[in-house]
Design a binder for these strands. Structure first.
Lengths: 332, 332
DNA sequence: ATGAAAGCGCTAACAC
DNA sequence: GTGTTAGCGCTTTCAT
């Protein structure tokens, strides 16, 4: 069933049907009703594919995040959804699994599907996918990880600041042997998370022990594995910072399994402050990141970009983070 | 940049370009290379919109869930994503916010965008959106809430069984005054959650007190509000069952705010067993639902449906649930 | 092995 | 106000 057929049944041309579908004022009241009745009757469903091909807009935007299973990104997506829904845009969601190849593939895919724009949380600071977006002249905005090449719309949080604050807080509480659990990089990108950690150690004249740094998947299992490895190597530590709260939960898991206590035996500080962190046992001390806002602002900015094609000035916004003290850190 | 232009640059017709794009064997090796080189050179991006219009398939499926912010649905989506990704399908994600109107709107939207199929967790047992899907002859599968009209592909969990098990467990622990926090219905649909609760009370000769039943949004805030209202009315209770773990967390929140203890003052049992429940303080006793599997199986079944158009037998699968005893219930 | 041409379902410019 | 028509960018017969 297409507009042509609807037109035939209503005794008008397909152009007229199209007009009533688009709410064009150029159609007589009676005709409109006639057409609408037929549409109702035959349960006609417009084909947006055809429409999009013609008008060169799909009213959908693509979102690619590193891990759809992380509540942090969920919050971001909620923020995106909130504003996109208002403007009748749909979301196409992809999870790159912290994999640059996959990220690249998804970005191409979404571009081919002619999304009107993309919101991407790149896996590295030099995403090849982002380079292509520029080449293809597709509106997009990057969040979470700032990209090194400056002139790109982005809104982010300084990850090195997060790890710096966490490490410093631990140091202030008398900790010197602090492990850092970063996310697993599928390339040898430099890590802002580690650089903040280093800075804090440095400022306090604590020599770096490289064996205290580890990379694992940024989820519960990853955090668990990290601790398992440290324990196996009999590494001594009293504090831990993690790249995300989920990894910190992995430490909680390890604590039950290997019989150590948080914070009595090890103090832990997470990063991102997912909604459930405050209800953990013990409530997790963490660095709060404005995840919902990250999504909200990204979507808003992208939409603006899509709507006023003219306005080409780039916006780079850094959002604040703050330390949330709860009960997973003990003073030595 | 389109295939015609690419063809011109490569000195062939657009038909030939299309053939190399589709990996057709009917193109000479040399020609293929020539075309591929140009494509690479000019950074050509195929337009899947046009392709989809022609081949009548979009390689994307629509997913509509009641609440994208609930980790339970996240898990489901992870399961869906897992298998769809393997088959190179994309996901269009929508959140109906437990609102039937919105659910209907999204289903129409996705249908208009010509998704190849839909996975929907309907808000009610008689979803109007689902009715339309049948009319439009679009492949789909329903999960979570079984629909009353039988002949529909679905895979679900019996919610009345969940609440029954939870209530019974509380009764076995000596509780008689048990509140039930259901999700907020925007229509007056009957609730399977409540019916299981009723059944357990009945079997144990505990008279129903209607004032112990409440409907709130199925999230942390909703659970919190429910308790606030009970407290305001000085309702007496020692146990609580909730429609999802997030609502149970709302009780945890209320416990801190209003100074009661879990499980000493009130025992609580959640429902769905989100990944973080075991790390809560105290670890939450709950009914485990196979969320990831729900998504995984739904996607698998939908894909089968899409691929063998012939095979029209419907599959109705009920998945098992089980009580997970942790530490949020106290024996009276 | 390649090209010409029809057509997927729609919109919009143009004619009346 | 309404109809006719030319595309949007692609795939796919049908010729050659």
């Amino acid at each position: 069933m297409d507009i042509k057929e609807v037109g035939k049944l209503a005794g008008v041309s397909k152009a007229t049907v199209s007009r009533v579908l688009c709410n064009s004022p150029l159609v007589a009241k009676g005709t409109r009703k006639k057409v609408l009745d037929i549409i109702e009757q035959v349960n006609y469903l417009p084909n947006y594919l055809a429409r999009s091909l013609k008008v060169k807009a799909t009213k959908t935007i693509g979102v690619v995040v590193p891990d759809i299973g992380n509540p942090f990104y969920f919050e971001v997506i909620r923020g995106i959804e909130k504003i996109l829904d208002k403007e009748n845009f749909s979301i196409m969601l992809c999870s790159s699994d912290y994999n640059e190849k996959k990220e690249m593939r998804y970005i191409s895919l979404l571009a081919s599907k002619k999304v009107d724009g993309l919101i991407v949380a790149p896996v590295s600071e030099e995403s090849k996918g982002v380079d292509n977006l520029i080449k293809w002249e597709i509106p997009f905005i990057v969040f979470d990880l700032p990209q090194k090449r400056l002139k790109i719309n982005s809104i982010f949080v300084d990850h090195s600041k997060c790890s710096y604050m966490a490490t410093r807080h631990l140091i202030e509480n008398g900790h010197k042997n602090i492990i850092a659990i970063d996310f697993l990089k599928h390339s040898q990108a430099s890590s802002r998370f580690i650089s903040g950690y280093l800075k804090a150690l440095n400022e306090n004249n604590i020599p770096l022990k490289p064996e205290l740094i580890i990379e694992e998947e940024a989820n519960i299992m990853g955090g668990f594995k990290a601790i398992k490895k440290f324990l196996a190597k009999k590494t001594f530590f009293t504090g831990a910072i993690t790249v995300c709260d989920l990894s910190a939960v992995g430490i909680y898991k390890a604590a039950r399994k290997f019989n150590f206590r948080i914070p009595d035996d090890v103090s832990v500080i997470g990063n991102d402050d997912i909604p459930l962190s405050k209800y953990l046992n013990p409530p997790l001390t963490t660095i709060h990141q404005p995840s919902y806002l990250l999504g909200y602002k990204s979507a808003k900015s992208l939409l603006k970009q899509i709507q006023n094609k003219t306005d080409n000035n780039v916006e780079v916004t850094e959002l604040d983070v703050r330390l949330i003290k709860r009960s997973s850190v003990k003073k030595l």
